[in-house]
């Protein structure tokens, strides 16, 4: 190999190494950017999910609290209660337990209230049984005082009134 070839090859190599030097910063930037974007995207997704889930779930909780607070001030009978339930939750109905003189309203499986009445009234014409004299509303599910997977009481011997 003569010196001319070597000199030309080395000159090409100089440019090659120079390009390497000039582009290496870009490689680090792109690697760092990729890592940053991946990590922060996971944080964003995870946090937003929690914020959204809690926010959506609390909408139900809020409406049930609002229903309970209004009921305790205005409701006298299970019929009044049914009307109020319809105002806050148009697509969900509560159910009476005539034997226990209670009415259970379940907004979700986690959020429910049980209203206790002190009298059963029977309509002489229709024989329709209703509850009257609201005594109290059990809001333990709203206070977290029940087990999350509490079995749903299926006793529904009362008649539904709307």
């Amino acid at each position: 190999m003569n010196i001319k070839t070597i000199a030309i090859a080395l000159t090409v190599l100089v440019f090659g190494v120079l390009i390497l030097v000039l582009t290496q910063k870009g490689n680090y930037v792109s690697q760092a950017t990729e890592h940053y974007e991946k990590t922060t995207a996971n944080s964003f997704k995870g946090t937003s999910k929690i914020v959204e889930y809690v926010g959506s779930s609390i909408d139900m909780n809020k409406m049930l609290w609002a229903l309970s607070c209004e009921a305790i001030q205005t409701v006298k009978s299970s019929q009044d209660m049914a009307k109020l339930e319809g105002k806050y939750f148009p697509s969900t109905k509560g159910s009476n337990s005539i034997s226990k003189m209670t009415r259970r309203f379940e907004a979700t499986s986690a959020y429910f209230i049980v209203s206790s009445f002190d009298k059963v009234e029977v309509d002489p014409k229709t024989q329709l049984k209703t509850l009257s004299g609201l005594k109290s509303i059990d809001v333990n599910a709203l206070l977290g005082e029940v087990a999350m997977a509490a079995p749903v009481e299926e006793e529904d011997e009362g008649s539904e009134e709307e």
Partner: peptide, 19 residues
């Protein structure tokens, strides 16, 4: 009682106890 109520609300929202 506050923590119980909070935890219940978070669990109802599907947030696990670790979080």
């Amino acid at each position: 009682a506050r923590l119980k109520q909070l935890s219940y609300m978070y669990t109802a929202a599907g947030i696990n106890p670790e979080a």
